[in-house]
Amino acid sequence: MFRTLPNYLKVAVCVKRVVDYTVKVRVKDNKVQTANSKMSVNPFDEIAMEEAIQLREKKVADEVIAITIGNKKADEVLRTALALGCDKAMHVVVPDAAAESVEPLAIAQILQKIHEEIKPDIWILGKQAVDGDFGCTAQLLAGLLDAAQGTFASKVEVKGTKVNVTREVDAGRQVVELSMPCVLAADLRLNTPRFPKLPNIMKARKKPVETRDVATLGVDITPHLTTQTVTEPTIRKAGVKVKTVDEFYNKLHEAKVI
C-alpha cells in the first residue's frame, strides 16, 4: 500500500497558477476578465511547497514532487517549485479552452490517478485557491483516496508512521493524528514561504518537467457546474467623512448603531 519506513517519506505538493492576489479583477461581458492580469503561484500553495521542502530539510522526507494541472503557461509555477527545491515536477497539461473550467473534483480525480502511480505518503495542498475560492480539492482528494485529511493545517509533525496536524478551526485549534497516506491542506499560519534564489531560478530552467496530457489519464474534466451569470458585487458608495470625534459619534448615533 504505502511505504512505512520512517524518514523516507515521499511528499507530493500541488501548485496552481492564479491571478495574483493583489489584482482586483473586473467583471465584463458576464465573465471575469483575467487576460493580461499578473499571474503568480497561489499563495496557499507557496506555503504547501515550503512545508514540503522543510520536511525534506528535516530529513523526514526524501523526495518532494510538485504537480500542477493547467494550460501550457502553468509550467512557470513548476519552475518556481524547482527553484525552491522540489526534486521533481509534473505538469498535467489541459487544453487552453478547458483550462479555466477545470473543477476541484476533476483536479482531485486527476491527482487520484497520479497517486496510483507515484504513491506519496503525504499530499500537501493549499487550503484554497484565491481565484475560485472553492477550498475543497484536498478534501475531495482525501475522500477519493479514502485517506485521512488534515485541513487548515497550521502545524505538521511527522511522528513515525503518523502525522500530527494542528488545524485552525472556528474557536481556536484542533490537533488530530492521521495515518499515512494522508492529505494536508495548508493554512496561512503554517509557515513563511522563502523566496527562490536567482542561481536556483536559473538552474530550475534547465531541470526537466514531466508532462502529461490530461486526455491520457482517463479523467472526465467536463464541468459539473455551469456558470450562468457573473456580475460585479453591488458597489458600496463612499459615505461622508466627518471632521471631529463629536460629529463622528453623532452620525453613528443617528444611524442607531451606537
Partner: peptide
Amino acid sequence: TYAGNAITTI
C-alpha cells in the same frame, strides 16, 4: 469568487 469581487450564479 475572487475574494468577493465576482458574484457567480452556477
